[in-house]
């Protein structure tokens, strides 16, 4: 049991991040905080990909004369990391759009607290 927890500690951290993100979106009333929760949620998934692709004792996929190229375990699979670069860019774009929308909400309603906002929208 202890081993199970110890060996997978990275995944536990990712789960924690995921739950924190969800908590932010669920419970926080401020729209900015909700947005922050969303970013944490998204990033936890990105870290999941990165973590899953990591191998102990392996190196970047650049041919190293000291390591045999026949042994797969010697080199990392670069694909997930590069994919996550794209995902990060996508995430940043979404946060940008989110902030722009938050600004325009504040201009229209002079508040970012959700209960007040819903009240003023009626």
């Amino acid at each position: 049991m202890v081993d199970f927890i110890h060996d997978n500690y990275a995944y536990w951290a990712i789960m924690l991040l995921l739950v924190i993100g969800l908590y932010g979106m669920l419970m926080k009333k401020n729209l900015i905080k909700k947005l922050i929760g969303m970013v944490i949620f998204q990033n936890s998934i990105i870290i999941l990909f990165v973590t899953a692709a990591y191998k102990w004792g392996a190196t970047v996929p650049v041919v190293d004369p000291g390591r045999s190229t026949d042994e797969i375990a010697n080199y990392l699979n670069p694909l997930p990391h590069t994919l996550m670069l794209t995902a990060i860019v996508v995430g940043v774009a979404i946060v940008g759009v989110g902030f722009a929308i938050v600004i325009s909400i504040y201009r229209n309603f002079q508040t970012l607290e959700e209960p007040e906002l819903l009240e003023r929208m009626k």
Binding site: L22, M25, L26, M27, K34, E114, P115, L118, M121, K122
Partner: peptide, 18 residues
């Protein structure tokens, strides 16, 4: 409840998905 104006807050929707 007013059909046009009442909306559950965002948290409820997120919760529903969860």
């Amino acid at each position: 409840f007013d059909a046009n104006l009442q909306r559950a807050d965002l948290g409820s929707n997120v919760g529903l998905i969860l």
